[in-house]
Amino acid sequence: MSFHKSTASPDAQTAFITGYLEALSLVERLHRLLLDVVKDEFERLGILDINAVQALLLFNIGDHEVTAGELKTRGYYQGSNVSYNLKKLVETGYMNHQRCEVDRRAVRVRLTEKGRGIRDVVGALFARHAEGLESHGVLGPDGIDQITSSLRRVERYWTEQIRYIY
């Protein structure tokens, strides 16, 4: 951490802030587009009883068995209404739930065979997109590594900012 003042000119500082705001907007748009891409794939396949947020949740859980509380802390779920989506996934047969033996308040969830089928559909979609990005020259391995590395640094910075609040 540095306590030195920025040596950037006011114009450079304004340009950086503008770029930062543009990056934030892009991250937000990309997340919404991802949901649209998943939704469109499911509509194309005639799978209409699950939404994109729920499908991504199933994909991210994969073969793990987790509690509802762990979904956010492990980064499996980015939405705001975990309970609603878990309830719908259990009702539609994509997920099983069971009270934890140690802590009866906690509920552990895992995918059913039907849920693993959805996970596989999303995984195949992502594999096709990865191949397409590379084969069309949109992004190669170095580009993916650079983006991932940069986003991880932003994630660490934001996490540190939250920690300093408390």
Rank of each mutant, 00 (worst) to 15 (best):
M1G: 14
F3H: 09
K5D: 09
A8N: 05
A8I: 00
D11I: 11
D11E: 14
Q13A: 10
Q13W: 01
F16R: 07
T18N: 08
T18P: 00
G19Y: 01
G19M: 05
Y20P: 00
Y20E: 05
A23M: 04
L24P: 01
S25R: 06
L26Y: 08
L26H: 08
V27M: 00
L30V: 10
L30N: 03
L30Y: 06
H31C: 03
R32T: 05
L34Y: 01
L35M: 06
V37M: 04
K39M: 09
D40P: 00
D40W: 13
F42D: 02
F42N: 01
F42M: 13
E43Y: 08
G46H: 08
I47F: 07
I47Y: 07
I50W: 00
L56R: 06
L57D: 03
L57E: 01
L58Q: 02
F59N: 14
N60M: 10
I61L: 15
G62M: 10
G62E: 09
D63C: 06
D63H: 14
D63A: 13
D63P: 04
D63E: 15
H64L: 14
H64A: 12
V66K: 11
T67H: 14
G69F: 05
E70H: 06
E70T: 05
L71C: 08
L71H: 05
K72I: 14
Q78E: 03
Q78A: 05
G79F: 07
G79H: 06
N81H: 06
S83F: 08
Y84S: 07
Y84R: 13
N85H: 15
N85Y: 15
N85C: 04
N85S: 04
L86G: 01
L86I: 15
L86W: 02
K87N: 14
K87R: 15
K88H: 07
L89T: 07
L89Y: 04
V90D: 08
T92R: 15
T92K: 14
G93L: 11
G93M: 12
G93N: 10
Y94E: 09
Q98C: 10
E101N: 07
E101Q: 09
R104F: 14
R104D: 13
R104P: 08
R104G: 07
V107E: 10
V107H: 09
R108N: 12
R108V: 13
R108F: 10
R110I: 09
L111R: 11
L111V: 11
L111E: 06
T112D: 12
E113Y: 14
K114T: 13
R116C: 10
G117W: 11
G117H: 15
I118C: 13
I118Y: 09
R119L: 11
V121W: 01
V122A: 07
G123Y: 08
L125K: 02
F126K: 05
A127F: 08
A127Q: 14
H129R: 14
E131C: 01
E131S: 10
G132P: 00
L133C: 10
L133P: 01
E134M: 03
H136V: 00
G137W: 01
V138F: 00
L139R: 00
G140C: 00
P141F: 01
I144Y: 08
Q146Y: 13
I147M: 11
I147Q: 07
T148A: 12
L151Q: 08
R152N: 12
R152W: 10
R153T: 10
E155M: 08
I162N: 00
Y164W: 06
Y166I: 11
Y166A: 14
